[in-house]
């Protein structure tokens, strides 16, 4: 069963190393300051992420239309 399309689950994508560096530079943050997501989280199972990867989450926000959020994968 795939939960990917469930109404409550927004789209999760894995950032490449290049995108990751650019993002951290653009936002002026270190990796530790980002919100976190567990490696065991069911929504990122199909992505085969490793710890310290960054997951981009495209939310459908009620106030701002589409909004983007980032989470760092932790153990």
């Amino acid at each position: 069963m795939s939960i990917k399309k469930h109404n409550l689950v927004p789209k999760h994508t894995l950032l490449t190393d290049k995108q990751k560096e650019k993002l951290l530079a653009d936002l002026h943050v270190t990796i530790k300051e980002l919100p976190k997501i567990r490696l065991s989280d069911s929504a990122i199972q199909p992505l085969e992420a490793k710890s310290n990867d960054i997951i981009k989450i495209s939310r459908e926000s009620r106030s701002a239309g589409n909004s983007v959020y980032y989470r760092i994968v932790i153990e």
């Binding site: 409550l8 927004p10 989280d41 069911s42 929504a43 989470r71």
Partner: peptide, 9 residues
């Protein structure tokens, strides 16, 4: 079952 982002929603 659905993960942390779904929980937020």
């Amino acid at each position: 079952v659905l993960g942390i982002e779904a929980t937020r929603n």
